[in-house]
Design a protein around this nucleic acid. Structure first.
Lengths: 213, 213
DNA sequence: GTCTATAGGGTGATAGAC
DNA sequence: GTCTATCACCCTATAGAC
């Protein structure tokens, strides 16, 4: 009982420290460019403990990847589900607002997702995972809502993928390209963040301008 | 004389073969994930020759990177310069058309550029390179044209970076995210390419809808 | 659970023969 | 210019003491 208590009292478990460090480095620099030694040093633990807790670099990466995919694709699901009573347009506005907040807090996430989406492992189905299932379900209902709006003449008749693509592009691309945009325009980190916050209001307007009839 | 002739008659020089293989692999998989042995095998040459011709993996990568940056940012300069007589709007239409053609021919380029733009080496000025200079110049005159159109009330008053960002987003992002889009929608390579060709006509319309007064 | 030490294999680069 | 053989280093992973 005392032993258990003492364990809980420790700030963070060794396992959690390793995972946090791995998440930081893998997300910033990717699998290949990250050394297990870097992860050990970053988390202040011994190199051997990484393999003790996670068996291999690959296994640890997969855990981080899964968490990041859920963060990128699924953190929004609940914000949508919590607002079932709102119209599709209002839901989109909320989604954009939450998503940009999330990306400001996790600016390396878009590039990481683009990176892993290019690997073979990523194509695996994941249909067993309940979270992945609910993400997939949301994507489907999102697609349906778009097609209904096309049917009813509310929005212009274009391939739904253009609509999804353009929304993702406008929201996500500036973060994936932030290094490029900053270095070529000489803009500061703070100015960049302010522009991204500005986009929370602008993107819904742009989307309507592009697709509304 | 004969010796020279014979040399020229060879299909491709060893040096060119190595560079072509390096370009392919570096562009697909990046610096870290590419082995010098892979480059040697891909080009059908001996590993030692890579260092004989290019001194190091790093030097070879820098050459490939420079060529890719020029392809990504500069291949368009001439198409603009060759159409000085056209209006800004018409120039944008041509730019989008050429750019999407270029990206269909080089689908891995966007991700590669996003990748290297995150490294320290990329931030170097390059102001000595004449091609880089003309790219920078084009970017400036592009920015000027936007600001003039804002001044004259032709387009809405927003930060020019939003306009640049959105154009880049709509053009480039689907290619950077093609693996993600394909795997999550089950779309085929051919269907994807057709959608991208469709966008050559759609993006100018969207841009106008977003920003024209 | 945590450490040190080291195995085992891969990687970039080069020496030296031809 | 091109090849084979090899060095020197770095990486992941594990054995074994505590």
């Amino acid at each position: 009982m005392m032993a258990k208590k003492k364990e809980i009292e420790k700030d963070v478990s060794t396992e959690a420290k390793i995972k946090a460090a791995a998440k930081k480095l893998f997300t910033q620099n990717g699998f290949e460019a990250t050394r297990t030694r870097d992860i050990a040093e970053e988390s202040g633990i011994n190199l051997a403990l990484l393999n003790y807790y996670f068996r291999s670099k690959q296994k640890l990466f997969e855990i981080v990847m899964r968490e990041n995919v859920v963060l990128f694709m699924g953190g929004i699901v609940e914000s949508i589900n919590n607002n079932m009573h709102l119209s599709f347009e209002e839901k989109v506005e909320i989604l954009i607002d939450r998503y940009i907040d999330m990306l400001i807090a996790n600016p390396d996430l878009p590039f990481f997702i683009l990176s892993v989406s290019r690997t073979e492992e990523f194509k695996s189905d994941d249909s067993d995972d309940p979270i992945m299932k609910s993400i997939k379900q949301m994507r489907t209902s999102f697609m349906m809502a778009i097609m209904e709006d096309i049917q009813s003449g509310k929005i212009k008749p274009v391939h739904p993928l253009h609509i999804i693509s353009n929304m993702m592009s406008l929201i996500v691309f500036p973060f994936a390209a932030s290094a490029l945009l900053k270095s070529r325009t000489g803009i500061s980190d703070k100015e960049f963040e302010n522009l991204m916050i500005e986009r929370k209001k602008l993107i819904p307007v742009w989307i309507k301008a592009m697709f509304n009839n």
